[in-house]
Design a protein around this nucleic acid. Structure first.
Length: 413
DNA sequence: TCTGGGGTCCTAGGACCC
DNA sequence: TCTGGGGTCCTAGGACCC
């Protein structure tokens, strides 16, 4: 079994840097202290990606831009461009698909590749080097490539030394390459687990690997068994070629540029989120039976509530009605910073149960949604928006990747 | 000029049924 | 009037990933 993990180095930053160079920008962002960061005025001012020179100042992903600038006053901040990132991600995926039919897009900047399913015209070691070289030469950015016999080891391998490196991490290399690393570098050891492990005096992956599993399951339950296996390089998961059909939930959320204090404003934000999440649901040919609304207050307190519907829905109107009901039951009147909506218990839309809703009304509503989806797909998301958003100061579709500000169109719905 | 947005999985507790 | 345990469903919250 030969599995590759391919990881774009400082993906958002590299991709923005390449794009800027192509546009004639004189400086390569990768070579100066720079970050990709959100808009502080929109209250999204965090570091999404950093250059290697920025990293030397101690800037970490997730820092606020204010923190980043206090570490490095000369920092260059680049706005994210998600459409560009999706294009770059697609290009990487396409190139990797030449090496195997089984490529899993793990995230926007990472793929797994099952080379055992490939044609094997190259030895795996040669293939790894060739992938790395071709991405750099043909796509203009660098990747780290990890090779092993399972996904976990391939991924840990690709993260060993960056950038532009190819590493193997086969079982006989675990002791030498994996075990000396700090335990928090192991996949699935996050902040909370790290703290508890340190309290148990477990500080390296090797120490974790050699701790009796029973001791770990006492503290961490099933998660303890998982990280113990990972520390020993054990992982039986398969590379699954990307298909949205397998997705379990879909959600959209947004931080609002101001604190929302009135229910009426909150409803508009909710509606704009419902519009987008419902479009995404329908584009997956799915329906959802559970609707969940989450809030984050101006004090950063988070809470959420969910509701199981009598039957699955995909209509914007039904989803919004459910979300509104949940919001009314949920909201404790505090100023709201962030609102989210999530849909789960997804089922394919090719069959669904009959409900108490009038089938004729339903059909009419679904036809309307379908029409709106088609128009937006053809003429742009904002070719058709609800009139209630006009002059509201709230964008008619929200959540996910908001590409700058669109001019307000005035079609009625 | 303070703190994003997209997901998955697990656990615990309460309601409810038999 | 007092007492049971098992199983399932639903929900809230937290941990993790990118």
């Amino acid at each position: 079994m030969f599995i590759f993990h391919v990881d774009a180095n400082s993906a958002f930053l590299s991709w923005s840097a390449i794009h800027a160079l192509e546009q004639g920008h004189p400086i390569d962002f990768r070579e100066i202290p720079s970050v990709v960061g959100g808009d502080q005025k929109q209250r999204r001012g965090i570091v999404l990606a950093k250059s290697i020179p920025a990293k030397r100042y101690g800037i970490r992903t997730g820092d606020t831009l204010a923190e980043a600038r206090s570490l490095c006053p000369d920092l260059t901040v680049v706005s994210p461009s998600y459409k560009l990132y999706v294009r770059c991600s697609d290009a990487l995926f396409q190139l990797l698909s030449e090496y195997s039919p089984v490529v899993q897009r793990y995230s926007i900047d990472e793929c797994f590749l099952d080379y055992s399913q490939g044609k094997f015209s190259l030895d795996p070691l040669q293939a790894g080097l060739e992938i790395k070289r071709r991405v750099r030469e043909e796509l203009g950015f660098t990747v780290n490539v990890g090779l092993s016999c399972n996904k976990l080891l391939a991924k840990m391998g690709s993260e060993l030394k960056k950038p532009d490196r190819f590493h193997t991490l086969f079982p006989d290399e675990i002791e030498e390459k994996l075990w000396p690393l700090p335990v928090e570098e192991l996949f699935m050891v996050g902040r909370a687990t790290k703290r508890k492990l340190y309290r148990l005096n477990i500080r390296t992956i090797g120490e974790l690997a050699n701790t009796p599993q029973s001791l770990l399951t006492e503290t961490f339950k099933s998660h303890g068994a998982l990280i113990h296996q990972y520390a020993n390089g054990i992982d039986a998961s398969r590379v699954v070629p990307g298909k949205t059909l397998l997705q379990k939930s879909v959600g959209n959320s947004t931080t609002i540029a101001f604190d929302v204090c009135a229910a009426k404003e909150a409803y508009l934000v909710l509606l704009s989120l419902c519009e987008r999440v419902a479009m995404r649901l329908r584009s997956m040919d799915g329906m959802a039976q559970v609707v969940s609304v989450s809030l984050k207050t101006s004090e950063f307190v988070r809470y959420q509530q969910q509701h199981m519907l009598p039957s699955p829905v995909d209509e914007t109107k039904e989803i919004f009605q459910a979300a509104k009901n949940i919001f009314d039951a949920l909201w404790r009147q505090e100023p709201i910073r962030h609102i989210g909506i999530h849909l789960s218990e997804l089922v394919p839309n090719d069959f669904y149960q009959l409900t108490f809703l009038d089938p004729k009304d339903r059909e009419k509503e679904q036809r309307l949604d379908k029409t709106v989806d088609a128009l937006r797909a053809r003429y742009g998301d904002l070719s058709l928006v609800r009139s209630c958003f006009i002059n509201s100061g709230i964008k008619p579709l929200q959540g996910g990747v908001n590409e700058g500000d669109y001019p307000m169109m005035s079609s009625q719905l």
